[in-house]
Computed example of a mutant assay.
Amino acid sequence: MTLSKRASWFLVAVGVWSWVIWPTFLRNIWKDDRSWDDGPTGFFLVHLVLTVVSLAIGTAVAWLGLRGTRAGRGAETGASASSERLVGSGR
Rank of each mutant, 00 (worst) to 15 (best):
A62V: 00
S18D: 00
W63S: 15
S80A: 10
R27N: 06
S54V: 00
V46Q: 13
L11W: 14
T59P: 10
V20H: 02
I29R: 15
R73S: 14
G39P: 03
S4R: 05
G15C: 03
T59Q: 15
H47M: 10
S4G: 13
L86C: 15
I29C: 06
S8H: 02
F44D: 07
T69K: 10
A62P: 04
L26G: 01
R70Q: 05
V14S: 02
R73A: 06
G88P: 05
A13C: 13
L11M: 06
W17N: 14
A71G: 11
G58A: 02
S89M: 07
R27A: 13
L26R: 03
G72N: 03
W30R: 03
G68C: 01
W9R: 15
L50M: 11
R67T: 01
G39L: 00
R27F: 14
W19A: 10
A71T: 01
S82W: 05
T59G: 01
A62F: 08
L48D: 05
F10E: 13
P40A: 13
D33K: 00
R27K: 15
D32A: 11
V49I: 10
W22A: 15
P23V: 15
V16H: 04
A7W: 02
A13Q: 12
T2W: 04
L55C: 03
